[in-house]
């Protein structure tokens, strides 16, 4: 076993070395390198994955993150927008009095106290140890109670049959789904597809539990907002600039 682990570490170390130099902005590295987790090891609560979204950098009309999400997770328009899945959407906001406008991407907020998990009758809606809120489609019965309970409208119900799924992202008719934070990518140390696609650098992914991570440092420095903070859900996705 120790031999196996060693070879893994060497391998991952090499990958890390290759990526270490990749910096998109001063102080903003693309990959947090300390997270390598062997495939056989369970996700742990020492981490809490989260996003910081800077709405002042998010361009109105730009939908790169939405497109990247659909491509990564294997869904697109079926011609019925009202039943289409939307794991991430661009919301345009206008302050009612001043007309002050913002644009930002909205997705599952990966709450620490997720209402969808509380209401799910079978436990299909669950929170992984590292804070990612997921739907276990194997035991989802399609009751849609989580969709009633989510204050962010972050869940979609699959209304139609699908084929040619991404092998890493199974999805099918009759179950509820939502943003997984690209858990399949996180588990191999990649960032969520939306974050990677954002040319403006408006999205930052990282470990909220690690005080030295870029995301934690920024949250400690700048004023950030949780959407519907009044509900006390302690969201994993935070916003800057609204």
């Amino acid at each position: 076993m120790s031999k196996v682990d060693n070879s893994r570490r060497l391998f991952i170390g090499a990958g890390a070395a290759a990526t270490a130099g990749l910096v998109i902005a001063p102080g903003v590295t693309l990959l947090d390198l300390a997270h390598a987790r062997p495939a056989g090891e369970a996700a742990s609560s020492t981490k809490r994955w989260g996003l910081l979204i800077d709405s002042s950098k998010c361009a109105t009309g730009c939908t790169d993150c939405v497109t990247a999400c659909g491509k990564e997770n294997g869904f697109g328009s079926t011609g019925h927008p009202e039943t289409d899945a939307q794991w991430i959407r661009k919301v345009e906001l206008k302050e009612i009095k001043s007309g002050n406008s913002h644009s930002l991407p909205m997705m599952c907020q990966h709450c620490a106290e997720p209402p969808c998990v509380d209401v799910c009758p079978t436990g299909a809606s669950f929170k992984r140890a590292d804070g990612i809120v997921l739907v276990d489609r194997h035991i989802c019965i399609g009751c849609r109670y989580c969709m009633m309970a989510c204050p962010y409208k972050a869940r979609s119900f699959v209304h139609e049959e699908h084929e040619d799924q991404n092998p890493e992202v199974p999805r099918g008719k009759g179950c509820v789904e939502g943003c997984t934070l690209c858990v399949h990518r996180i588990d191999r140390d990649q960032q969520p597809a939306c974050v990677e696609s954002c040319k403006e650098g408006a999205m930052l992914f990282g470990d909220l539990n690690d005080p030295n991570s870029e995301i934690s440092k920024r949250i400690a420095t700048y004023a950030t907002t949780q959407v519907r903070a009044d509900l006390g859900l302690n969201t994993g996705v935070r916003y800057q600039g609204i």
């Binding site: 893994r8 991952i12 040619d164 799924q165 092998p167 890493e168 999805r171 191999r188 990649q190």
Partner: peptide, 18 residues
């Protein structure tokens, strides 16, 4: 829900595959 096909060749290019 699951795809019945393996991931198409060329799709599996991950920077760090475990």
């Amino acid at each position: 829900c699951h795809s019945t096909k393996p991931k198409a060749a060329g799709d599996t290019l991950h920077p760090i595959v475990a």
